[in-house]
Computed example of a mutant assay.
Amino acid sequence: MAIEFIGIAATQETSESGAGTPTASRDGISTQTEAGHAHGPVVQPGYLRDIARAHEESGFDRVLVAHSSASPDGFTVADQILTHTDRLGVLLAHRPGFVAPTLAARSFATLDAFHPGRIALHVITGGDDADQARDGDFTDKPTRYRRTDDFLDVVRKEWTSAEPFDHEGEFYRVQGGFSAVRPATPVPVYFGGASEDAVRVGGKHADVYAFWGEPLAGIAERIREVRAAAAPHGRDPRFSVSLRPVPAATEAEAWQRAAEILRLTKDRVSEARATFNLDHGQQRGSQRLLAYAAQGDVHDKRLWTAIAKTTGAAGNSTALVGSYEQVAESLLDYVALGVSTLLIRGFSPLADARDYGTLIDLVRAGTQRIADPVALEDPVVPA
């Protein structure tokens, strides 16, 4: 089974100590790390190159370029990453509704033309009304998902139509649409969201459906839901899980680091909430993570929910804590459920990107042993 590993890119350096100001983002606190402090300008070209190359050297397949109403332009950031690496791909987050779908499709196709096969689209419909409003969008979530559905219909036509096309949808009308630049191979579409509307639209369009790091039983439930939504459209999506590994040489050392991350996060989240009036209660994915966190700090073998509880489940906020071998074992448990993409990012972005090469090697070696689904209580991990 081929496993895809995705990290996360950043244009600004952060660390787990020092002084700084919280950075607003789609994750609520920082696209880099809840526990970290930002240093220097928001856009640091040298740092972006360093973190991209660190991911490539560690064996990652892609890095996510995240999106928020305050983020630097993602297309520019993606092009910089692709230009300064040799094989690393980019998963570029994009919110439908602010750029015409024909133009967005050509922008992705142009990146693909310069860097064939290395760009993918991550559809972020938008679960935070306040962040949408910062860019002038005051629609409600059900409307946004209907708009995303219409948007992706046009994007697919722009990517694939060899002849001019017309489109008459609820939100977009196109006459004689045509693109001179089209991807030689399909640009993969990743999709996230936990609401019924998200599953309905994602089931229709997603090549890869992305989940936050829930316990194994929750991920199994969500896979069944998405497959059921995708089946009427003749689609068979792959699945991604996003997690925050905290590995160390020993389990005890890993938990010591986790305790320090939690301490720093508690300090930082209070400052961020006061600055940005953060509230993720309307997001179904956050509600699910908080419900699990209320049941206990540790689920399955080592899924740690304390950061999710502290931040209000602001995005990808559940961690796996243990030795390298133990964390790899837990990642393989998700693979055994049918997950083929693992989005892993740490709390010290650059250092963790370099360190995660060990995890990637262990998981890829372990997947070679998985010919059929294994029992969750008895996963097979390389020594």
Score class of each variant (00 low, 15 high):
93 A>Q: 02
171 F>S: 08
152 L>Y: 07
94 H>I: 07
317 S>Q: 03
268 R>T: 02
308 A>N: 02
305 T>R: 04
112 D>C: 11
328 A>V: 06
21 T>Q: 12
164 P>C: 10
180 A>H: 14
87 R>Q: 14
84 H>R: 09
72 P>G: 00
131 D>L: 14
222 R>L: 07
50 D>H: 04
268 R>A: 06
279 D>G: 06
378 D>V: 10
227 R>M: 08
45 P>F: 03
250 T>D: 08
216 L>Y: 06
39 H>Y: 09
43 V>T: 10
7 G>K: 02
288 R>K: 12
16 E>S: 11
305 T>C: 04
146 R>F: 09
165 F>M: 13
200 R>K: 14
135 D>T: 13
245 P>H: 01
118 R>S: 08
219 I>S: 02
24 A>F: 03
60 F>K: 01
324 Y>F: 14
174 V>Y: 07
270 S>A: 15
210 A>L: 11
38 A>Q: 03
288 R>D: 09
342 L>P: 00
167 H>W: 15
314 A>C: 12
296 G>H: 10
117 G>E: 10
74 G>T: 09
74 G>H: 04
19 A>W: 09
279 D>N: 15
86 D>C: 06
222 R>T: 09
61 D>C: 08
243 L>E: 00
243 L>Q: 02
172 Y>S: 09
20 G>A: 07
222 R>I: 01
162 A>C: 11
155 V>E: 10
141 K>W: 11
194 A>D: 12
23 T>A: 09
337 L>N: 06
89 G>R: 02
204 K>L: 06
147 R>L: 15
65 V>K: 01
160 T>Y: 05
72 P>C: 04
98 F>W: 15
151 F>H: 13
18 G>P: 03
39 H>F: 12
351 A>C: 02
190 Y>L: 12
54 A>F: 06
190 Y>W: 13
68 S>H: 04
233 H>L: 10
244 R>H: 08
